[in-house]
Design a protein around this nucleic acid. Structure first.
Lengths: 352, 352
DNA sequence: CAGCCCTATGTAATCGATTACATGAAACTT
DNA sequence: AAGTTTCATGTAATCGATTACATAGGGCTG
């Protein structure tokens, strides 16, 4: 019999390495399994002597509780699902890091789901969530599972705590962590206007996106505050990607009456757009000013350095994770958390 | 009693929503739980009639197997851990996407661990892995858990399948998925040399990094192939980040005898470096040529567009995930998979 | 038609923890 | 001193699946 005394296990032919079980620890510490469990979960409810023996036995055996068994009994997974529209998007990476940090400190792991615009994947992760593989979820995709298809089929009824990050989910009674997109867009627009720009183009996000709607409202707010008229011809459709910026640039280059400034609702689009302008022989900001949104790492080192709206991405991730942890641990969380943005003035916008 | 007949459950005051269990399905389909389980796992071992009744009952109840229970019994989690040195690094995002895609198709979920240079985190995830929370792991960090500290303490003995991605792990007997860093670096160096550059600076990665060592050897290979002497003074330390590129640029600007070309071992450094050169009034490529490595999204839209080495990032992720899945499903996997890189010539390098 | 094998199914053990409940001893109350 | 409370601990039920083993019936072989 080995040191741990796996006496009631198959012995000779079973060469798989068996994990240490709570029973092995209990035997070594000469207590019951209940005491071992309590020594870990509620140390104050165990006598100091027993606790010491248990801890020693744990150290000696290298015992790690089996998470599946623990989850099965306690219904807690200590896992959180993060739902993203697109993992490859630069904007999310720092947010993810903020989330991961905070979850880790609280003892939670992070499972990532990249929806990738696929309804199958969405259904899969809805089932995943419903099956109790995670204790809670952070949604960065702007809608609830199965939200669009109602009536037909069984819309996934998720009963675990949820938090919406960045893209608010209208109508959902869950904490929303975001920035004030409307105010930020208005501020940028006014910044451009106060630099003397009268004809300001706007490169949008996907129009069904709540961020886009807010930023678009903010753009109009800003125009109005500056006493400028809104011109629908100056709205160029985009989707936040570099490629959309490139296309918007082509659109712009082809125009006869060009705006003097372009407000792109993502830095990625701004950088793609500038690329196209350069290729066409236009200079930024001399011939045309360009502003972005997000303040990703590359904004500061773009040529010219990009004037943009700074989003506290890491803090957003941390705030969302904290809010969720509060919920998971039975505490409450404010329904709406808004973090401050900042107008970052660099070199891509000039005064007329 | 409700439709599912939870007769042996607490009824009135328990308002928690109970998940449908296999027993509920069994009762509805008028079979045993074993048959339900078999109908899902090995349909060919169940009669068509019973199978149909089971599937109908599952559809009616919306049954989803409880993963914790399944894992506890079968010792399979259908989860894979991805270990990264830094989640915020742009380079990883597309790789992650490739991994996620492939895992998803095979029915596996992805848990992400951002080590962030923290030994505590590393220890945590080693325990995590040892506890059987995942079936396998993909390592992007270039070393095994607990590899550095041996002898002292109990080095985590991981018994699950592992795969190394990008950073090969010397001495580890696990599949390694990578590119030929040495050949790629040599190729770029020769490209610069063949454009007439004789004084080529090299901005390195962290020197303890295996990628760096390979690329550095490749750089020297390339010099030698071109008949150029290696000059240690032209090696500038870096760590693959934008900031390192900025610093390298400052170093370069301050020099009296400047090289005519700079080979940066990451695009991020190349972009940061160009930024600094511009700020100092130097032009790329007229005054100095700059080459990168990786071909991240921003390389193509940088100003000037960056000449670089293209890494098939998504494919790397997919290959690593496939290799791991093979291992998890009892098949074998080649010990070394090398994907092809490509020299991408854009505008940041000029001929002298 | 006896004997054998194969198929479909059920019964119940099992995975490894948590935790409700029981128990006995010690401490406190009146 | 009897009764009550508290504390430390143990016993065993439980979480919800998978799966080893048992069994019954049907088809096949000789």
């Amino acid at each position: 019999m080995d040191e741990l005394g796996h006496k009631d296990r198959a012995e000779p032919e079973d060469t798989r390495i068996r994990a240490v079980r709570i029973q092995d620890v209990a035997r070594l510490a000469d207590v019951s399994t209940a005491t071992v469990s309590r020594a870990l979960a509620t140390p104050e409810r165990v006598s100091p002597e027993a606790r010491a023996r248990v801890l020693e036995a744990i150290a000696k055996t290298g015992y790690v509780p089996n998470p599946a068994a623990r989850t099965l009994r306690s219904q807690k997974t200590y896992m959180v699902l993060v739902v993203l529209p697109d993992l490859a998007n630069t904007f999310f990476s720092k947010i993810l890091r903020g989330i991961e940090e905070t979850l880790f400190e609280a003892g939670y792991g992070m499972i990532i789901s990249d929806l990738d615009g696929s309804p199958e994947k969405e259904a899969h992760f809805a089932a995943f969530t419903a099956a109790g593989r995670v204790d809670g979820a952070i949604l960065l995709n702007g809608h609830l599972f199965g939200q669009s298809r109602d009536g037909e089929g069984q819309p996934a009824r998720i009963t675990i705590p949820l938090v919406a990050l960045c893209e608010a989910i209208p109508g959902a009674d869950i904490p929303q962590i975001e920035i004030d997109n409307r105010a930020a867009a208005s501020r940028m627009t006014q910044h451009l206007a106060s630099a003397g720009h009268r004809r300001i183009a706007y490169v949008s996000g996907p129009t069904n996106n709540i961020l886009e709607r807010e930023r678009f409202l903010g753009f109009k707010d800003g125009l109005e505050a500056a006493g400028l008229a809104f011109d629908p011809a100056l709205v160029i459709p985009g989707d936040y990607t570099i490629e959309a910026g490139v296309r918007a640039g082509q659109d712009l280059v082809a125009r006869s009456a060009r705006p003097t400034a372009v407000f792109c609702t993502s830095d990625e689009m701004a950088i793609g757009l500038m690329r196209t302008l350069f290729s066409a022989g236009l200079r930024v900001p001399e011939d045309i000013s360009v502003a972005g949104f997000d303040d990703i790492e590359f904004a500061a080192v773009a040529e010219p350095a990009l004037t943009t709206i700074h989003q506290p991405r890491r803090e957003l991730g941390q705030a969302a994770a904290s809010a969720l942890i509060n919920l998971l641990q039975g505490r409450s969380s404010p329904k709406r958390i808004r973090l401050e943005t900042e107008l970052v003035i660099r070199d891509s916008v000039t005064s007329l």
